[in-house]
Simulated assay, not measured.
Amino acid sequence: MPVTKTEKFEVKGNERFTNAFIAYVFGFVGGIPLILMKDTDEFTKIHAAYSSVVGFFFWIAFMGAWHMYPGYPEFGWALYVLALWYVYAVFGAWKMVRGELYSIPVIDGLAKKLISALASAV
């Protein structure tokens, strides 16, 4: 069973690059405002939701790695988590700029629930 599947969407100008940068580099903090904005298209909202959900899990992993040893913070293992986040962020932003939509099975359901929950808040 493939981990990801892709769909192709039409790419429009530099706005796509800006939204990709905001959504993926700033993680779940950058994805939430993109979901809440009314003039954001569905393609951007889906990518922002993916970034928010995956970014939240990476944040939890980063905090766990940061405080792995009791008594003092350890930044060594946290650097590996941070490096993995940036690999994912580059992958997601690259897919978004190209106009492709990817799907990760468990994250897909959580991202759609996030979009529907925040859509009712606006």
Rank of each mutant, 00 (worst) to 15 (best):
E7K: 15
K8N: 13
N14H: 13
N14F: 15
E15M: 03
A20T: 12
F21M: 10
F21D: 08
I22S: 03
I22W: 00
A23M: 06
A23T: 01
Y24G: 12
V25T: 14
F26G: 03
F26E: 02
G27F: 06
G27D: 07
F28P: 00
P33W: 04
L34C: 02
I35P: 01
I35Y: 09
L36V: 01
M37G: 06
D39Q: 10
D39A: 12
T40V: 12
E42T: 10
E42P: 06
K45I: 05
K45C: 02
H47K: 06
A49V: 04
A49G: 01
A49L: 00
Y50G: 07
S52Q: 04
V54K: 07
G55D: 08
F58A: 05
F58N: 05
I60G: 00
A61K: 05
A61P: 08
A61H: 03
F62I: 05
A65N: 07
H67L: 11
H67I: 04
Y69R: 11
Y69G: 02
P70G: 04
G71D: 03
P73N: 10
L79I: 11
V81P: 08
A83E: 03
Y88M: 11
Y88P: 06
V90W: 08
F91L: 08
F91Y: 15
G92A: 12
G92W: 02
A93W: 10
A93R: 02
W94G: 12
W94V: 14
K95Q: 15
V97Q: 01
R98M: 11
R98E: 11
G99I: 06
E100G: 04
Y102S: 06
S103A: 02
I104W: 05
I104Q: 13
G109C: 03
G109L: 05
